[in-house]
Design a protein around this nucleic acid. Structure first.
Lengths: 245, 245
DNA sequence: AATCATTGTGTAATCTTTACACATTAAAAA
DNA sequence: TTTTTAATGTGTAAAGATTACACAATGATT
């Protein structure tokens, strides 16, 4: 960061003291908001909380918090996730900032949006959180603040990412059938996929571990259950998916 | 944004006044930093300024500024670009935030990183900016603050983006030969490309306008000059590159 | 025992990507 | 003026990836 133009005035009074410089900067309220995705009953779901602001009475909003003065934004987002879902080590990606000056009725609040993918069955709502619920993504209309826009942008990011990286496994139970996997991809991408080609593709990636177990309590021929080979994925991700990640 | 857990204490004193709520948030110094890429002499270059902080005396840093209280982060980044290069309507993309608590020696400063692609010939350095220079990306070693990391992350983003979107044209003059275009891609991706396949690919995309003109002052057979069909790209980008952008 | 719903499987056609060589052109040198 | 040089401009065959598509096998239900 360097100060704005014009520089010439600064030349005479070159600020030697970094602390003095920083203390002269305008200060902004800074938050993170998390789009927490889950998958259940063949529907992509999002965890939302009822707004605690009168201005948005009754509207649902993303889970978020102010950023503490000694933590990174990503850590703040992890903290929100941990506090709200009890889960650790979950997939989390920063998407972008939202900073229109009037986006919060109480004044200037800049937020950084993250999305995460969790296994909805591992998540236990805390008793205190009776204002927190899962919502079917497709039925969400209006939200508080600019959160519908944040949700839309994060969902688009997920749609793009999942076509290049096998992120979907984060949303599934430990063991899953290929039909469940396909249902997940069809729900996220909102398209129909060819069953045979879908299976061929995932088998050829070689990330699936055959558990030798089968579905139970299904009213038809049960499918085989697989696990996702996270270790192999982490080792091979460069080979499969390019430079970073 | 909703307040952090535990919620139960808040229940009793439910904050009705959004302004009062926001005024209770911690406040952070917020900046933007721009990785401004240019292309000249077959090298990918970055516009840098000498740090004005004693702590980083002599080190080069990205161009940035504090975010004003009434502007969006993207607008702040555009403002930096406009002030530093005199250019408008240039490609700019937010990459991610950088917020380690000690990244600035003067105290907590959170920054959002952007990268932009400009035609280096259109850019006129202002007379006052004698501390601003273009640097060959490959030779940049050390930088002030965490700017080397920001630069690396933005460069990786560019490398990925340019494989899916024809962003490279933003770096080239209005009229260019296919050899220049290929040199640009080879410089950005840091790989060698097959000349025939490269040409085939770009012709098949159908974004090139044949100007019927040829290079001059080259010590060999001159190549044809083309323009990029920005309008056609903007109309067809969904068809070619998927959902958003 | 018959029916139902879903699983599991292979191949041919199309499209995309890659590898690769030689004639043409204008400038520069002889 | 001729020769040399250094690049441009062009096509095809092979390999790989993607798509379209149908039927037998299985276990649960009736």
């Amino acid at each position: 960061m360097n100060r704005s133009l014009p520089l010439i005035e600064e030349k005479g009074t070159l600020i030697q003291d970094a602390a003095e410089l920083v203390s002269s900067y305008p200060r902004t309220a800074l938050t993170v908001d998390c789009v927490i995705f889950g998958f259940e009953e063949n529907e992509l779901k999002v965890l939302l909380i009822r707004s605690d602001l009168q201005a948005y009475h009754g509207l649902w909003t993303l889970l978020g918090d102010v950023v503490h003065s000694n933590e990174e934004l990503g850590d703040a987002a992890y903290r929100v996730l941990r506090e709200r879902t009890g889960l650790k080590n979950i997939f989390l990606e920063e998407v972008q900032t939202f900073s229109t000056p009037d986006r919060h009725p109480g004044g200037r609040v800049v937020t950084a949006a993250y999305y995460s993918l969790i296994n909805i069955r591992h998540h236990q709502l805390r008793r205190l959180d009776n204002e927190v619920h899962w919502h079917n993504l497709k039925t969400i209309q209006q939200m508080g603040f600019d959160h519908k826009m944040i949700l839309d942008v994060c969902y688009q990011r997920l749609q793009r990412r999942i076509q290049e990286h096998p992120l979907g496994f984060n949303l599934l139970p430990d063991k899953f059938s290929l039909r469940e996997l396909q249902n997940l991809y069809e729900a996220i991408l909102d398209i129909k996929l060819d069953r045979r080609n879908f299976r061929k593709k995932f088998f050829s990636m070689d990330f699936l571990i055959d558990t030798e177990e089968y579905e139970v309590d299904v009213p038809h021929r049960p499918g085989k259950l697989y696990k996702f080979n996270f270790e192999k994925y982490q080792k091979n991700q460069k080979k499969w998916f390019g430079i970073d990640f």
